[in-house]
């Protein structure tokens, strides 16, 4: 089933800059989709449009088969969740516990049920021991895990990550990547859109969509898209050395699968 259908979607913040330029495509239910593109190519704008945080042009977005407009936005939004880039700017509560409660309060969950839900989802992202900690005493990765728990506790059918790992150190990045994979395993039916600059993460996805200047320039399997180095460079994306090396080896008929230089060298 097509869970997201986009038809001739355009958006501009002001007369001059067209952030999204006549985009059409669709995403199947249960897919893990990576969205790539250079800075300012319109990825975040696109994510906000899908969440109804920006108003799309008429009849351009359908989610769950329902047209997204002012009347349906609250209902549709309640079936989706988004994790943004900056760990600090999405932490609303005074403590982890309060932050998780914030989403439940919005959903009018009964107070008596909240504690068990909070514990359940804190457990899923390994944050139980930090429940009473304030955000300033948490690392960026921990805050992002709280954000993920907050989103998961709403039982969303679509989860969007807008560069959720971009501001984290390597350890934080790894934590979040693992959390996302675990989340995918626990909820096979969940559709995940992950906006990322991390080509490695894009490799883990079922499908890759590449943006360039407000337009979609690719949609397809990661292997097909990410191998075309020339094309990627054309749209302003850096390819990590390992990936480039791997591609070159493959062209010579040597197949390796390691994702870090050491692993590749070891395999060789």
């Amino acid at each position: 089933m097509k869970i997201i259908e986009v038809n001739h979607l355009s958006y501009k913040y002001n007369e001059k800059d067209v952030a999204i330029n006549d985009v059409s495509f669709s995403i199947d239910e249960g897919k893990y989709v990576a969205i790539i593109g250079h800075n300012g190519s319109g990825k975040s704008t696109f994510a906000k449009l899908l969440m109804g945080l920006l108003e799309p042009n008429e009849n351009s977005i359908k989610e769950f088969g329902i047209d997204l407009n002012r009347k349906t936005v609250h209902e549709l939004r309640s079936r989706m969740g988004i994790v943004f880039q900056n760990p600090d700017n999405q932490f609303v509560g005074a403590t982890v516990r309060d932050d998780l409660a914030f989403g439940l309060e919005n959903r009018c969950i009964k107070r008596e049920d909240m504690d068990s839900i909070i514990n359940e989802y804190a457990e899923k992202v390994n944050m139980v021991e930090f429940l009473d900690k304030e955000p300033e005493n948490l690392s960026g990765g921990q805050k992002q895990r709280v954000a993920i728990a907050g989103v998961l506790s709403m039982n969303p059918e679509i989860v969007i990550f807008d560069e959720a790992t971009a501001m984290l150190d390597p350890r934080g990045k790894k934590e979040i990547r693992e959390t996302i994979l675990k989340m995918k395993k626990d909820n096979p039916g969940m559709t995940i859109l992950s906006i990322t600059h991390d080509i490695e993460e894009a490799y883990q996805a079922d499908e890759v969509i590449a943006f360039n200047d407000g337009k979609i320039v690719f949609q397809g399997k990661p292997e097909d898209v990410l191998k075309d180095e020339k094309k990627l460079q054309e749209i302003g994306l850096d390819i990590p050395f390992v990936v480039s090396l791997r591609n070159k080896l493959e062209a010579k008929g040597i197949n390796v699968r390691g994702s870090s230089l050491e692993e590749v060298v070891k395999e060789l």
Binding site: R77, I82, N89, Q90, A101, F102, E105, N106, C108, R111
Partner: peptide
């Protein structure tokens, strides 16, 4: 943006933790 995405609506009914 984040609060709105998480379903916050000051006018709507909410429960309190």
């Amino acid at each position: 943006d984040s609060m709105e995405a998480r379903g916050y609506n000051p006018k709507a009914k909410r429960t309190t933790y």
